[in-house]
Design a protein around this nucleic acid. Structure first.
Lengths: 209, 209
DNA sequence: TTGTCAATTGTCAGTAGCTGTCATTACCGT
DNA sequence: ACGGTAATGACAGCTACTGACAATTGACAA
C-alpha cells in the first residue's frame, strides 16, 4: 500500500506545495514562475504540471483540502439537526481536526500567510471563489438529502447554502485582512459573522450593532 | 464631445465585443483565440489588448455593465427603505433599464447565450465571481452609508450583502442552466429565490416547499 | 489649407503558462 | 534477476500577454 513509489510521490508533491507557498508568500504569486518552483524542488517544469494542472492549483491545494474536510464533517453529522444548525455546528466541531490536517502538509503559519496571498491576488481569488462554488454545490446536495427535499425543486437548500457560504467567505476575507491573523481569531470572526445572519436580514437595524 | 476619434473607438470596442461573444457562443471560449477575434474585426492582436486587459474582460464586459447599473440603481434609491428591501426593490425597478442598456451594445439573445457560456466555462466563471465580489464591496459601502452604520465595525452590511448576493448568483446560475432562458424567466427565478431567503434560514423546513 | 501635436494602431520580439510526444529511468511483482 | 509499468526529463510548440518603436490618423491652431 505504501510502496516506495507512493511515498516518493507524496514527498515530491508536498515539497512542491511548501516550496511554492514559500515563494508565493515572499515574492508574490505573479512574480513567481513555475520554473522557480520546480527548480526549488529539483524537478523539471513538466513534472510540476503532472502534479498540478496549473499554477493556481498548487496555491489552492491546502484550501481545497480544508473545504473537503468541512464537507465530510457535514456529512458525518447526526440526523435531526436543522439545516442551518448543521452547517453552523460543524464549524465549531471540525476546527481542530482541520488544523491538524493542515500541519501534516505545511506549517500552519505559512498556510495563514498563504490565505492572505490568495485574498489579495486577483487570479487566485477568482480561482478560490470558483472552487468554493463547486464545494457549495456538494453541500447543497448533502443538505437536501438530510432534509429529505429535492434540490432541483425546492430552492431552500441552495438559498441556505448560498447565504451561509457568502457570509463565511466574507468572514474569512475580513479575518485575512487583519495583521494579526491567527486560528483563534478566525474562529471568533466566523462565529460572529454567522451569528449576525438573522439580525442582518430583519427589516430595521436598530442602533450600531 | 463626440469627435470622430471617440466614435471610431466606441465602434471598434463594440465590434470586438460582439465578434468575441459570437465566437465564444458558437465555438466556445477556450477554443477561440484572441487572434481570431482581432481578425474578425480586422485589427491587430495588439489593438485588442489595448481595449481589453485580457481575454476574460471582453467576455465579461456586458455582465460588468449590468452589475454597475444595478449598483447605481441602489444608490439612487429613496431613503427610508430597510436595507434588505432596498436591495430587493431595486431588482424589480431596474430590470427594464438594464435590458435596454444591454441592447445598445449587443443583441439581447446573444447576451443570454453568453451568460450560459460564462457559467459553464471555468475560467470565465472564476473571473465573474471575482468581479461580483468587487461589486459586493461597493454595495456594502452604500448599504452601510444608507443605514448610517460603519461597515468596518458593524458586520451587518457585509453579512446582508453577502447573503443576498449569494442567493442572487445562485438564482442566476439556476436560470442560466435552463434551456429556455429568457428575461422574464430570469426575473421570476430571482424573485422566487430571494423570497426564500427568510424561510430557508428558519429552524425547521416543514414539507416540500 | 496646411502643419504640428497627440492619440491610435501595427509590427516585432520576447516571456510565461501549459501540452503532446518520446526516450530514459526507477520501481514493482514474479 | 527480469519484464512490465509508472514516473521523469528533454524538447518542441501553442496561446495569452507585454514592451518598444515606428507609422498612421484624427484634432486643432495658424
Amino acid at each position: 500500500m505504501t510502496g516506495l513509489r507512493e511515498r516518493k510521490k507524496q514527498r515530491t508533491r508536498d515539497a512542491l506545495i511548501v516550496a511554492a507557498h514559500e515563494l508565493f508568500v515572499t515574492q508574490g504569486y505573479e512574480d513567481t514562475t513555475v520554473d522557480q518552483i520546480a527548480e526549488a524542488v529539483d524537478v523539471s517544469q513538466r513534472t510540476f504540471f503532472r502534479y498540478f494542472a496549473n499554477k493556481e492549483e498548487v496555491a489552492l491545494f491546502v484550501q481545497d483540502m480544508v473545504g473537503q474536510l468541512y464537507y465530510e464533517a457535514v456529512c458525518a453529522r447526526p440526523a435531526g439537526e436543522s439545516p442551518l444548525d448543521c452547517l453552523r455546528n460543524t464549524l465549531d466541531d471540525a476546527w481542530d481536526d482541520v488544523g491538524e490536517a493542515v500541519e501534516e502538509i505545511t506549517p500552519l503559519d505559512l498556510h495563514l500567510k498563504m490565505c492572505q496571498v490568495i485574498e489579495t491576488t486577483p487570479a487566485l481569488l477568482a480561482a478560490h471563489l470558483r472552487h468554493s462554488l463547486l464545494m457549495e454545490e456538494k453541500l447543497v446536495q448533502e443538505i437536501a438529502r438530510r432534509a429529505g427535499v429535492d434540490a432541483e425543486k425546492d430552492p431552500r437548500p441552495r438559498v441556505l447554502v448560498a447565504a451561509f457560504s457568502g457570509v463565511m467567505r466574507t468572514a474569512a476575507r475580513q479575518w485575512s485582512m487583519r495583521n494579526d491573523s491567527s486560528l483563534q481569531l478566525a474562529r471568533q470572526v466566523t462565529g460572529d459573522y454567522v451569528a449576525q445572519l438573522g439580525p442582518a436580514l430583519t427589516a430595521d437595524w436598530g442602533q450600531q450593532g
